[in-house]
């Protein structure tokens, strides 16, 4: 069905072209840094908003996933649109198998959004002072599985949007309903990882967040599988 050599080649090509153009890197980094700074200014300005720990953690969880969604929509969706706009999709179609193209691009997108999350998550938690009761392991698992789900959905939606003549705004419009179940679990899981619901001794963080983590992992597996099954038709037609 696909080969490691082909996937590796597409993955490396994505990283190499991105490193040289920095189109997605610059837009996602700007969005992430801008988002964290503005959120910190709004919530910690003078006088600072008097939020208790659970409220602060809930705001941080919501902001984190807003940030990851929009940075994803800004950066990840470009993977296929650029190929179509520049005409390189033709050479790619002539040489590469559809599955290798999708997996290579998905892995590059996953790496990009995971890298962004690694930078943005601690920044946001520190900026909002929301990490007093953080469970770092649960937070890592929730953010990582959520990012993989976002990367899979955005990579597939990006391929769909690349075929359309009016691309502006279409990626976010298409992917938001598809990502809604992921965001419900991701926000709830992030709140649990930041101590909401566990501080009063109701349950340890992992017990509270385990259901969400299972939803996120299932979503990631299903979105990758579905995209792989459908992408062949999209790419070849």
């Amino acid at each position: 069905m696909w080969g490691v050599r082909e996937i590796h080649a597409v993955f490396l090509k994505e990283l190499r072209t991105e490193w040289r153009t920095k189109v997605a890197l610059s837009s996602t980094a700007l969005f992430a840094i801008g988002g964290v700074t503005l959120a910190a200014l709004a919530l910690r300005g003078n006088p600072p908003l008097a939020l208790d720990d659970p409220s602060r953690a809930s705001v941080a969880a919501g902001l984190l996933w807003i940030l990851l969604f929009f940075t994803g929509a800004t950066g990840l969706g470009r993977a296929f649109a650029l190929e179509e706009e520049r005409g390189t999709a033709l050479a790619l179609r002539l040489t590469a198998r559809a599955s290798a193209v999708w997996i290579g691009k998905f892995l590059a997108n996953a790496l990009l959004i995971l890298g962004l999350a690694i930078i943005a998550t601690p920044m946001l938690i520190t900026a909002l002072d929301a990490g007093r009761n953080v469970n770092a392991l649960l937070l890592t698992c929730v953010v990582a599985s959520g990012c993989i789900g976002i990367a899979a959905t955005m990579t597939f939606a990006g391929a769909l949007v690349a075929q359309a003549s009016a691309k502006s705004g279409l990626l976010a419009t298409l992917s938001l309903p598809a990502l809604a179940p992921l965001f419900v679990a991701a926000i709830h899981g992030t709140r649990a990882a930041l101590g909401v619901g566990t501080r009063l001794g109701i349950a340890p963080a992992f017990q509270t967040g385990m259901g969400d983590l299972q939803v996120l992992a299932s979503y990631a597996v299903i979105s990758v599988t579905a995209a792989l099954m459908l992408f062949d038709y999209l790419w070849n037609d």
Binding site: K13, R16, T17, R20, G87, L90, A91, L94
Partner: peptide, 15 residues
């Protein structure tokens, strides 16, 4: 089993 060269065949400009 096909190779193609045409005016719309483009390459990655940064590579």
């Amino acid at each position: 089993v096909v190779s193609y060269a045409g005016p719309d065949l483009a390459f990655y400009p940064e590579l």
